[in-house]
Amino acid sequence: MNQSLGACLNKMPYADSPKIKSLYITFELIIAVLAIIGNFLVCLSITRTKKLRTITNYFLVSLAVADMLVGLVAIPCAVLTDVGRPHRDLPLCLLIISVLMILTQSSILSLLAVAAERYMAILLPFQYQRLMNPRAACVTLLLTWSLAVLSGCVPVIDWQKQPENSMYCIFTCMVRMSFMVYCNFFCFLLIPLIAMFIIYARIFLIVRGQLRRIPQVRTNTFCTGQEDTGNMEATEMQKAISIFLLLFLFTVCWMPINLINCVLFFCPTCDVPMYIILVAILLSHANSALNPLLYAYRMRSFRRALMEMWKVV
């Protein structure tokens, strides 16, 4: 461990501030409720609306399930680890921390699967029709969740090297900061994010070039198929933009806490104010509550499905 037990205990957020503890827990509970309700409605609208059962939405359901579990499981676990609740069962504490990491990894891997699916749908349509089907989507989802579980279980696998004399379940005490920076951030978060930004940049550049050529083609031909192709590409472009906004939102919400981890790891003498750490933690959890709002705002099909369900109720 690169931090002593005493240093970890001194960084307990609420050691001398019950007011901060109550305020933090209140915000966490609000985020949890919004994440549960919003993502449940997303899953319900897709399962009840046949038109929404597309390959893309299979992956969005996976993301919504992960976000809903953040509200149901991860946020309560995070409150326990951030508060530094006394415990006597070290493996149970590490299991709680692993759940947090598994759900984070499942979210980023679901976004990566959506990016790959959008790339094939827009730039490789013939291969897409041959390869992508509900069965292939389910296999991909099984693979993403399996990888998330494997990466998230590292703290449990390494449990014998944790400080057995610790009476508190604190995230920074139980997980090696070197693992959080090099493995969790650089490998499992930063590399997929860079790959996805490259994928979407290529999609936008190619589709924009194709859309610019279509008006010129229309002036030289009376073939209506060109117009249909243009409309289809424009629709796919709108879908790609909506998914890209999910990726951008994920980056904005999760980057601060990971950058703070880097600062604490590479600069042990640096002191990050506790309120900044707490805000970064809340922002990372808020991502799960904001995603459904983005679905409803950007995707007309979701808005219609939600309105129809509301009328039925």
Rank of each mutant, 00 (worst) to 15 (best):
C262F: 14
M307S: 09
S284P: 02
N258R: 12
V263N: 04
E308L: 09
S288D: 04
N291L: 05
F250C: 11
M274E: 04
A280V: 00
L294M: 10
L293H: 04
E308I: 05
L283T: 10
E308R: 07
H285I: 02
I281S: 12
L278M: 10
F266K: 03
Y295I: 09
I281Q: 14
C253I: 03
F266S: 09
Y297F: 11
V263P: 05
W254P: 01
P292Y: 00
A289V: 05
W254E: 05
R303K: 15
C267Y: 14
A289L: 03
F265G: 08
R304F: 06
L290Q: 06
Y275G: 00
H285E: 13
I276H: 00
P292M: 02
L290T: 08
L306T: 01
Y295P: 01
L259V: 14
L259G: 04
C253L: 10
D271G: 01
I257K: 14
N258G: 02
F265L: 09
F302G: 01
A280E: 01
P292V: 09
C253W: 01
V279W: 06
M274A: 03
S288I: 02
N287D: 03
Y297R: 08
V252W: 08
F265T: 11
W254F: 11
T269Y: 08
P256C: 10
N261K: 07
E308V: 02
P256E: 06
C253K: 11
A305F: 00
A289T: 10
E308S: 07
C267M: 11
L294I: 13
N287K: 04
C270Q: 06
N287W: 03
C267P: 01
V252I: 15
P268R: 01
N287C: 11
P292S: 09
M299I: 13
V263C: 14
L290F: 15
L290A: 10
P273N: 12
F302Y: 15
V272S: 02
S288V: 06
S301L: 09
A296E: 03
N287R: 03
V279S: 06
C270V: 12
I276V: 15
F265Q: 07
L306C: 02
M274L: 09
I276L: 13
V252P: 10
V279F: 13
L264Y: 04
F302W: 08
F266A: 12
S288Y: 04
L294K: 05
L259D: 05
N287Y: 09
R300L: 11
R298C: 15
S301P: 07
Y297A: 07
W254H: 13
R303I: 06
A296I: 10
N261M: 02
R298V: 14
S301D: 15
S284Y: 07
L294W: 05
Y297N: 02
P292A: 08
W254I: 07
M299F: 04
Y297H: 07
L290D: 03
V279Y: 07
R298T: 15
P273Y: 05
C270M: 11
N258S: 07
L306H: 02
V279I: 11
L278D: 04
L283Y: 03
H285D: 12
M274P: 00
W254S: 08
A280M: 03
L293V: 07
A280K: 00
Y275T: 12
I281M: 04
M255Y: 06
M307C: 08
W254G: 10
V263F: 12
C262A: 14
E308C: 03
